[in-house]
Write a protein that binds this DNA or RNA. Structure first.
Lengths: 135, 135
DNA sequence: AGATACACTTGCATATTGCAAGTACAAAGC
DNA sequence: GCTTTGTACTTGCAATATGCAAGTGTATCT
């Protein structure tokens, strides 16, 4: 399952080998907005990821140290996922994707509000959100 | 072939629906570095894209106005592809991917040199490169 | 103890990708 | 003009990945 088939030495290509499929960045997005998610939380997202794909992507992301598991405070049956520092550092990419989408696609209002703050002071926003996700 | 299957209203999801596969961003990358490419140029890239996938991706990217075709000055048998403004505006995303990769993966020296300029003054770099790609 | 919640697995149909070969047309060479 | 080469794709088919439905194992709830 975890075939690390590196297509070339290009950093873009290598990055895409890790998280460049249709689903991984959506998992990262959920974790950026919610900070921590359970397996069930991911399944609830609007895009409707299949359970086997979700399990497979969570594993790959964990192997690549983008996310990590931790114990749920309420129950041992639940698992919490959260971003590692490596995963949190995908935030600038995520922000630029949102900015591009704002320019060329339609975008919901709540997201627009966030982007307003981003555009006001991007480095500040990134620093603040990074700190929040780390904490 | 051109099924626009929108998974949700999330801008990240919608963006990935357009160029979020393993190959599209590599095509965009080639066009950012080379400005204009022929079909054969894309095939020469290190990752080794299959001809049918390339044709399919070029079509999708063209349909989504990320790239456009133009006549090759030398020959009517050749086709030149280049980025539209919408495609050029993917540059900030491309840059952030490179910066992330620089931090967490190994990255070739020539790319490092470029990133040095980026880090010196990111908005300036983006503006200059955008202008060059538009011209 | 039995039911329920949660995090996955498994099996199988469908869709996408990857590879090899082929086609169509323009240009270059003889 | 006729063949050969270069370029941009298409086509066919095998391999792989995805999507869906159902099932499994463990922990908690009653």
């Amino acid at each position: 399952m975890n075939k690390v088939k590196k297509r070339s030495n290009c950093p873009v290509s290598c990055s895409l080998d890790i998280w460049g499929d249709k689903w991984s960045l959506l998992i990262v997005r959920d974790l950026m907005f919610a900070k921590e998610c359970t397996y069930g939380d991911f399944l609830k997202s609007a895009e409707g990821i299949a359970t086997n794909i979700l399990a497979s992507r969570l594993l790959t992301l964990e192997e690549n140290k983008i996310i990590e598991k931790l114990e749920h405070p309420d129950s041992k049956a639940k698992v919490l996922y959260r971003l590692t520092r490596k995963g949190i550092d995908l935030l600038p990419i995520m922000i630029e994707i949102n900015l591009w989408a704002e320019k060329y696609l339609t975008i919901p209002d709540d997201r627009k509000a966030m982007l307003k703050k981003v555009k006001n002071d991007k480095p500040r926003f990134i620093k603040a959100m990074t700190k929040e996700l780390e904490g």
